[in-house]
Design a protein around this nucleic acid. Sequence first.
DNA 1: AACCTACAGTAACATTTATCACAGAAGGAA
DNA 2: TTCCTTCTGTGATAAATGTTACTGTAGGTT
Lengths: 213, 213
Amino acid sequence: MQNSVKNIFPNFSNELVSTIEENGSQQNFEAGTILMRTGQYIKNTVLILKGKIKIYREGEDGGEFLMYYLQPGQACAISMICTAKSEKSQIMAKVVEDVTVMMIPLQLMDKWMMEHRSWYEFVIETYRSRFEEVLEVVDNIAFRSMDERLEFYLKRHSDACGCSEVKLSHQEIATELNTSREVVSRLLKKMEQRGLVKLNRNQIELLNTNFTN
Amino acid sequence: MQNSVKNIFPNFSNELVSTIEENGSQQNFEAGTILMRTGQYIKNTVLILKGKIKIYREGEDGGEFLMYYLQPGQACAISMICTAKSEKSQIMAKVVEDVTVMMIPLQLMDKWMMEHRSWYEFVIETYRSRFEEVLEVVDNIAFRSMDERLEFYLKRHSDACGCSEVKLSHQEIATELNTSREVVSRLLKKMEQRGLVKLNRNQIELLNTNFTN
DNA sequence: AACCTACAGTAACATTTATCACAGAAGGAA
DNA sequence: TTCCTTCTGTGATAAATGTTACTGTAGGTT
């Protein structure tokens, strides 16, 4: 079974995998689906088996701001920590590539934390790594200018997909960085002149992966 | 005993309090001490009994950026989560008001999580609330302009100290918001003209607490 | 082909924020 | 008092980013 919990989460113990399969419900969602909105109550923890989910923050004026992506083998840190007293979500979660997820009722969290060592470790590690990721996001917006942030953004994307082509329109990039399309176009053009990228319709090819880092 | 663990952390069980007092070491640090630097290894979890610690991010160019403050009854989320494999710190921690802290070896974390329900709940809650706080910080820098951020900053400060006077120089504020002193002076002046604050040397008096919120 | 729509490029201008330069005021120390 | 240091105010200017407006182009549809 390609997308089994056992394969995607190899560190989970066998009992844990069984428990998950007994208590969780596997579901599919199409790209574009919004799985969670700011202010909604969280009732489930989500384990990603397939596809990609975007976690972002929404401003009052409707602006977006990308926090990070969730991919197979990962889980939504926010949803994991909201313990028994199902808290309100502080973020938006949108499916960007058709996903298969395992939904697990929040009530089971505390119980599993005590009973399953591998679950405990997974939760702690998830939280730690997301915290770090968010700190890095803060760094980027606090200390860097838009051109650096754009480079960083492209690099993250190409790292994630493992290829050097980023298939996004300027508008999409602008939205995730909470800036305007014109700014992105301008900066990309400058990067092209510096020989860092090659621009095509709906696609940006990174020529020199080791720029800012 | 005024600054006892029992008083400052009322939710801890009696056994937990004893265990903490047995295994932790109580220490004092003066204002100005840097307790943790970016890149250092974390070997202890820190519970704050008295005083105030500033948690901030440092940019490559030396710029600062305030994340949040730690006060009595709180603990450093970062240090709590770095489990057994003592991780590197991603942040800076500086004492801003003389502190008394309880240092607890990291090795005990996992053990206590399993053995002490009240410790488990404390850790989870600490992590949850810090995550939210950092998300709010992201919001501020991603979606708001400097004048709004300044208002928010002042409000946080007056909330924290419970009084309407913020005793900080423009330079200190500028540093924490990673901007320049002149910008802060100018914006404060505008706020004064709008009747929101009264400016004095090393002190800003908030006149109208309910501005942006 | 003719048409339509989404995407990309770019100039001109507005706004925000950063930087430089300098002056004055408050408060402490000699 | 006089001197010194720190803090604050403010103008002038630069740089970065956001906004408006318009053009062209690629690709799909009819």
